[in-house]
Nucleic acid binder design. Structure first.
Length: 487
DNA sequence: CGTCTTTGACCTGCGC
DNA sequence: GCGCAGGTCAAAGACG
């Protein structure tokens, strides 16, 4: 990001790695400090010079021994870290497998005997690449269950921040003349040649043309941020600024510059109520792989998007969610159907009034940020109204995770933990004791608890499969740097 | 000198 | 048709 946050020109991937190494360093330092306390040498109180010389020698020796211990400790920590990463990888694979199977099952159940040629309301969140366009397949006639499963799987596993909605034909035919580029293109495919001049002009661009095939969700992130923009890992270039009505703070317009033709844009504006709150709205889909550092935010937003999508919102355009979380990278959030109150933020976008908008409120409420750092504590709750019967969830969970693993894996793992700790139709309280430094057993225990919690949540609430898929796909995309999205 | 930001002008959509 | 507001463009200036 870049321009964002001022510090900007430094490639985010590099910064991210720096952060990671910093964490290791901090861990070492912390442990070192603890050891020094434990084995610290008390100052001599003797007046005898000989004895003081001997003591100096002893101090020297003990210091050496201490150094040796510290080295060993560091080695152990390194191994521990490697082990954690390894465990995480295997966990990830397990989730991946479970999600895949569950998704297939659910799909069979959801479409048991319906018209096989009827296309389900596919919602595809794409990880920074153009989706595989399953919509309106020409081979709809031979759409077997397996092929549908594959499509569903694709949709489920291609989640990302830049959620793209594979609009159903019903939605495409929605009688709104300002649906924007995407809908117009849909109409074009359907044979409608009444394209506005602007649209025709833009369609010249291949990249944009690809964008026109999908519906794009808007992701709105509210976070407390002192810097002009939030550092989300992407590179942005400011192309405009405007004073929006009702807010004295100007709204800045940014364009993704990671790739020359990337259509992703974002708007940054300070909240009128609280100037310390930065409201960032993302729109569009990256057409390039994302920097690794961008995937954390991607995992958060993609999960939120998947929440929205799992609520079959595709058929109910204009509905917005309000997602609140107390951790930047946590998937914990509460979703509020804002359909009645119009979209909570940036609802007055004339260009895309029908775009589903997901608002992530990352501003920490005072009540939940009391004793722990924002990065190791987050609470979540999810409520949904009858507008989304399929996602009528009610849960609340609180998780305390160690910040000792707040690397790219740790955050996403936390994400999974937080989101999966949520249970359908019942409330759960999952408290993870903070990992004690140098206590591998507790770490293992906490990890096990987390694993159990995740598994439980997966099996108890199928709707979270999408969330898991979102987070996992984001992680995988980020790890492989193959493709990811966010912005 | 190249890149990025700033900022006024312009375009477009919407409501009256 | 007109005015308003949001969004974008592009020239000019700043900066490294």
């Amino acid at each position: 990001m870049d321009t964002i946050g001022g510090a900007a020109t430094v490639p985010r991937s590099i910064r991210h790695e720096d952060c990671f190494s910093d964490q290791k360093t901090n861990m070492k330092v912390g442990i070192r400090g603890e050891l020094l306390q434990d084995h610290g040498v008390k100052p001599s109180s003797s007046n005898n010079e000989d004895s003081s010389n001997n003591k100096e020698e002893n101090v020297h020796k003990s210091a050496k021994a201490e150094m040796g211990e510290l080295r060993e400790e560091n080695e152990r920590l390194k191994k521990m870290l490697q082990q954690v990463e390894k465990d995480y990888q295997s966990l990830k694979l397990r989730f991946f497998d479970i999600v895949r199977r569950e998704t297939s099952k659910k799909y069979e159940y959801s479409f048991p005997s319906s018209d096989e040629t009827e296309e389900p309301e596919l919602v595809s969140l794409c990880l920074g690449r153009i989706p595989s366009k399953p919509k309106k397949d020409d081979n709809a006639s031979n759409s077997s269950k397996s092929s549908r499963d594959n499509e569903d799987l694709k949709a489920g596993l291609t989640l990302g921040l830049d959620s793209k909605f594979q609009m159903s034909t019903e939605l495409v035919s929605n009688p709104s003349r300002d649906n924007g580029l995407e809908d117009v293109a849909e109409e074009d495919e359907a044979g409608d040649t009444r394209l506005p001049l602007k649209i025709l002009k833009r369609n010249i661009d291949d990249e944009v043309a690809q964008q026109t095939n999908v519906k794009t969700a808007r992701i709105c992130v509210r976070a407390r941020c002192e810097t002009p923009t939030m550092n989300d890992g992407c590179q942005w270039r400011k192309y405009g600024q405007k004073i929006a009505k009702g807010n004295p703070c100007p709204r800045a317009y940014y364009r993704c510059t990671v790739a020359p033709a990337c259509p992703v844009r974002k708007q940054v504006q300070r909240s009128a109520e609280d100037m310390s709150i930065l409201i960032t709205t993302y729109e569009g889909t990256h057409n390039h792989p994302l920097p690794v550092s961008a995937t954390s935010m991607a995992s958060t937003t993609s999960a939120a998007a998947s929440m929205l999508l799992s609520g079959s919102s595709a058929s109910q355009p204009g509905v917005g969610f309000h997602v609140s979380a107390t951790q930047l990278n946590g998937l914990s959030f509460s979703l509020h159907d804002s359909s009645r109150t119009k979209q909570f933020y940036l609802a007055n976008s004339p260009s895309s009034p029908l775009l589903p908008t997901i608002t992530l409120d990352l501003t920490t409420p005072p009540s939940t940020s009391s004793t722990t750092t924002p990065f190791n504590r987050f609470s979540s709750s999810f409520t949904s109204t009858s507008t989304f019967p399929s996602t009528s969830l009610n849960f609340s969970s609180t998780a305390v995770l160690s910040n000792g693993y707040q690397n790219s894996y740790g955050t996403t793992l936390s994400n999974l933990g937080s989101s999966l700790g949520l249970g359908k139709q019942h409330q759960e309280q999952v408290m993870y004791q903070p990992y004690m430094e140098n206590n591998h057993h507790q770490q293992a225990a906490s990890q096990q608890a987390l694993t159990e919690s995740l598994t439980k949540a997966i099996t108890s609430d199928p709707s979270f499969k999408t969330v898991i898929a979102a987070a996992i796909s984001s992680m995988m995309a980020g790890n492989g740097s193959a493709s990811a999205s966010s912005s």
